[in-house]
Design a protein around this nucleic acid. Sequence first.
DNA 1: AAATTACGTCAATAGTACTGACATAATTTC
DNA 2: GAAATTATGTCAGTACTATTGACGTAATTT
Lengths: 177, 177
Amino acid sequence: MTDRSHPAGKPIRTAIADEDGIDFAIIELFFFAYRDFTSDPDQILADYGFGRAHHRVLHFVNRRPGLTVAELLDVLKITKQSLARVLKQLIDTDHVVQLQGPRDRRQRELYPTARGRALALALARPQSRRIRAALEDSGASERALIERFLEAMVNPELRAQIDIVPAKMSGKSHGDH
Amino acid sequence: MTDRSHPAGKPIRTAIADEDGIDFAIIELFFFAYRDFTSDPDQILADYGFGRAHHRVLHFVNRRPGLTVAELLDVLKITKQSLARVLKQLIDTDHVVQLQGPRDRRQRELYPTARGRALALALARPQSRRIRAALEDSGASERALIERFLEAMVNPELRAQIDIVPAKMSGKSHGDH
DNA sequence: AAATTACGTCAATAGTACTGACATAATTTC
DNA sequence: GAAATTATGTCAGTACTATTGACGTAATTT
């Protein structure tokens, strides 16, 4: 093990710190935060034999009922083939239904069923609880700031996807700035 | 397609909104933010034939030089077998070296090489740039608040992992509160 | 000497993703 | 109306990351 047939490569024993002005602290926190954020729903999904991909589909079908397959692919940034199996399972288990597009009959509009909505809520509940607790722990009332920060982390050209939300957010600064 | 051999399941046409006090807005933003946050290094990694798993190992070996295999497994929350291939590749490509543990010779202490450090920096650079831009866009100066929020999103019992950072963070409120 | 620990490895499997190709139906264009 | 395009579905083959379980080896502890 200590004998390697390599050119060598001496071990660096100092930690990387925040050198070069690189924000390792937040990079790392973002990793841990997301890891635990997704762990809650993962547990529930396991009971259904579902994975994280099912969750994402379920989430967006509930958030934007009637979105088409193409729109969903665009939001998730995955390929048709990756979506296919997951979507099929959700349809077979009666969590999602497809309706023919009214204008364009080639399109499949995706809607949640009552069951699909219930599962989406069940998955979102622990995540929302975690967010609320984190907001309280970290100085609370700064929800808007966290929201703006996360939005600013998204690629500018993709922020349009976020703005297609079902509104309800009253006096927010986005939507048509 | 409209003909399903199912009990039915009527389509729900209304968006899920923030009903039940569930914070869908931030749940969704967190997904988008993390998706784009990881997309930067993914591009670089592809050039090396590496994946996200290599990045994570590289990151932690640079952040906590000398950590053992068992410690790494604990931080990453993956199994030995998942780590094995990834770690082997990083060692074979001279990004990481193993040294026998000084006290316990069964242990393998992991250290980055110069090459491994350079790659870790290259991967972190665009992420740090994105974070900085997001902080500026979203009201700036609130770095500490974002940091606290993210930390509060981590499972309490796992926050110990975060506190093993190489210090350097001067007057922060964590570490021994 | 025996049990435990740290690590490595092998076999088998799963979930999520990919590219590329091809088929079908519906719409749009000419 | 015929041709091109679009939306979707599907098939084949592959890759990466992850899983569980079993087994082996060396080193440490009991």
